[in-house]
């Protein structure tokens, strides 16, 4: 059962205020995923306290980097159920994991940070791993 918006909205806003487009329907996920040009980061947000609490601040730090994906979006696992299922459908070989982060380049999954690699880590460590991926896959920044 989804959590109360009173609890979840601040968790959504942590990402939306950092420039992430919220994808709340299957159609919006398809539209976002079907734009295959360039680099794109999809964050599967979650209420989970032991991982998401560090995931969101880590993501926010990472996207402050001068080199970052062209497009940023998020779905919320357990809240936007249809959208999350559709997003996972676009990564059919990857087991469900939330929170998690997936980066695509020209429509191909090039980096995935699953929940177990976020659990127990500091936000700075999550940000550092994301930034390494940005540097590897994002040829030019779009942080302007």
């Amino acid at each position: 059962m989804p959590y109360s918006p009173l609890l979840v909205n601040p968790m959504r806003e942590e990402l939306s205020t950092a420039g992430f487009e919220e994808l709340t329907t299957a159609d919006s996920v398809d539209a976002w995923m079907n734009n295959k040009e360039g680099t794109a980061l999809l964050v599967i947000n979650s209420v989970c306290g032991c991982a998401a609490g560090m995931a969101r601040p880590g993501v926010r730090m990472a996207v402050e980097h001068s080199m970052r994906p062209d497009r940023l979006a998020t779905v919320f696992a357990g809240q936007d159920v249809e959208a999350t299922a559709r997003a996972r459908g676009h990564m059919a070989d990857v087991p469900p994991s939330s929170p998690s982060m997936a980066m695509f380049k020209d429509g191909e999954l090039v980096f995935f940070l699953p929940r177990h690699r976020i659990e127990g880590r500091a936000a700075e460590d999550v940000a550092s791993e994301l930034r390494e991926s940005f540097e590897e896959h994002c040829a030019t920044g779009s942080n302007g």
Binding site: P95, P96, S97, F112, R115, H116, E119, R121
Partner: peptide, 27 residues
Amino acid sequence: ASRFGVWPKHRRLVVARSNVTAVRRLG
């Protein structure tokens, strides 16, 4: 598993501690 995680096949599993030889974080 360490790269992507695992497909959950069991919602809940209970393992007798006497049969467990090691527990470590997947991370």
